[in-house]
Amino acid sequence: MNNILECENLSKYYGSTKALDSVTLNIPEGRIVGLLGPNGSGKTTFIKICNDLLTPTKGRIRIGGFEPGIETKKIVSYLPEKTYLNNWMKVSELINFFKDFYTDFNTDKAYDMLNKLKIDANTRLKTLSKGTKEKVQLILVMSREAKLYLLDEPIGGVDPAARDYILDTIIKNYSENATVIISTHLISDIEKILDDIIFLKDGQVILSKTVDEIRDESGKSIDALFREVFRC
């Protein structure tokens, strides 16, 4: 099995602050990985580096064999935590936008999901509620047939029913050739669909195991272990 993501001693310093400190990871294809840690642990920094939105200070990272750049952007699908889409565009225009720039975008899939969620493609983004906007963003990201999906808090601001739908979509979209990395606080909701989890603390990897290994060894859920490890 190939590794979709490999990084070695990856570090990002802001002056004296170490946002990421010598992170070494090998993530194979076909996994659903949870990137877990408290605020400021380096999750977002790591994800931004994967997306070439930040330059590492030290170390190296390769996605699909390439350093973050145009080649990786073709195979990485990113869902940021915030709403980042042009508010004045209609949903259908956004779909065309994604189709224009990403060769792996599956338009049928996108419209299928929109229909299931009863979102009218002819509406402008700015007239939609926050929750609906987030669903649209998720649909756009998941409609790409990417090799690596980076989801930053995908179920954060959404109601429980929508959460189920989102987790459902992630499972349904699963492919052995693709890996999904989910960064989130809502661990108990998401545990069941994860293969592996990575605990990040102060920019360092303090745990990297499969979900079942942890449950087996500790007799606890990931959520419970998290609370223990990161006790305030």
Partner: peptide
């Protein structure tokens, strides 16, 4: 701004 998240993740220099 926020739209930068969209722009800079496009496969474009």
């Amino acid at each position: 701004g926020d739209e930068g998240y969209l722009m800079f993740t496009l496969p474009v220099n």
